[in-house]
Design a protein around this nucleic acid. Structure first.
Length: 280
DNA sequence: AAACAAACCTGTGCGC
DNA sequence: TGCGCACAGGTTTGTT
């Protein structure tokens, strides 16, 4: 579920609420959430540690600890991070609880019904071994910045369907299904265009579309869909879904041209939404 | 190399 | 009302 704008919204919430606070006690319910290492490794790595800051790379949250180790959390499809007053009844599927020192007494919950998400404590010195995917991650358009020239180079480096390329985290980190479809629509580019034959003018439009869609979605606190799965650390919903022009709008009139209906097709198992009139 | 399909899980919404 | 199926924001793995 959460893509770059949602993870960035969570990052900002954590930065404001948990940085500088010591973790006094850790509970790990479901072992699957800590499958990368072990329940004990996560408990031992976090207990007594203080979160120094909260960073984001693509959809990965990375929190350096004062112990020299680092906490990584990935929400995958259904993960949520919530900060709540100590003792508040926990939602179903709360798999990891970190008790935070200080006033007011609070807890950080990792909640994840589908259990695809994970929590890892690792030593940055061994990052290549413990989290090899981090080293292979592509450029983050927001955290790293992405110039038009750099973007053009990435598109030309291979010949793939443009949507597959934009979703490939090894190329560009952070774009997921919603923001991919929205960016392609805003740029007027069809999902199945080969990446290496997109014209310079289209590259300019697509680059601008990606930066603007991600930027505005972050400003809107992300997209909270009908199932209200995604919320920020305070439980607040985002509102970028109100600005979606294609995602989840199959069969509805295109808001841009007002003449064609939005089409939804399955591409490699992903729902793909586009306007057959606006996107060439 | 690129493009799928399946796998990992649970919850929800829809058609019958 | 109840049941079964399709599908969902991500990523990895294996197969054409």
């Amino acid at each position: 579920m959460p893509e770059l704008p949602e993870v960035e919204t969570v990052r900002r919430g954590l930065q404001a609420q948990v940085v500088g606070r010591r973790i006094t006690r850790v509970e790990v319910g479901r072992e699957r959430t800590v499958r990368r290492t072990s329940r004990q490794a996560v408990i031992d790595g976090l207990t007594g540690a203080t979160i120094v800051c909260v960073n984001r790379r693509g959809k990965y949250l990375l929190c350096p600890l004062d112990t020299g180790e680092e906490l990584m959390m990935h929400l995958r499809m259904s993960g949520r991070l919530l900060v709540a007053a100590a003792g508040t009844p926990r939602p179903a599927h709360t798999h990891v609880v970190m008790h935070l020192a200080g006033e007011p007494a609070q807890e950080l919950w990792f909640v994840d019904p589908r259990t695809f998400g994970e929590v890892v404590v690792f030593d940055p010195v061994n990052v290549a071994v413990e989290l090899p995917e981090l080293a292979k991650m592509g450029v983050d358009p927001i955290a790293d910045g992405l110039s038009r020239a750099q973007f053009a180079g990435l598109l030309r480096s291979r010949s793939r369907q443009i949507k597959a390329l934009l979703l490939d985290q090894h190329v560009i980190a952070g774009i997921g299904n919603i923001y991919c479809d929205e960016s392609l629509h805003l740029a007027g580019v069809r999902w199945d265009r080969p990446s290496d034959v997109v014209t310079p003018r289209e590259i300019t439009r697509l680059h601008a579309a990606i930066m603007s869609v991600l930027g505005e979605a972050i400003e809107a606190g992300g997209s909270t869909l009908a199932d209200t799965q995604y919320v920020g650390v305070d439980g607040e919903a985002g509102w970028f879904q109100l600005h979606h022009r294609v995602y989840d709008r199959a069969g509805q009139r295109c808001l841009t041209c007002g003449k064609a209906d939005i089409v939804k097709v399955a591409v490699a198992g992903r729902g793909t939404h586009f306007c057959p009139r606006c996107q060439k």
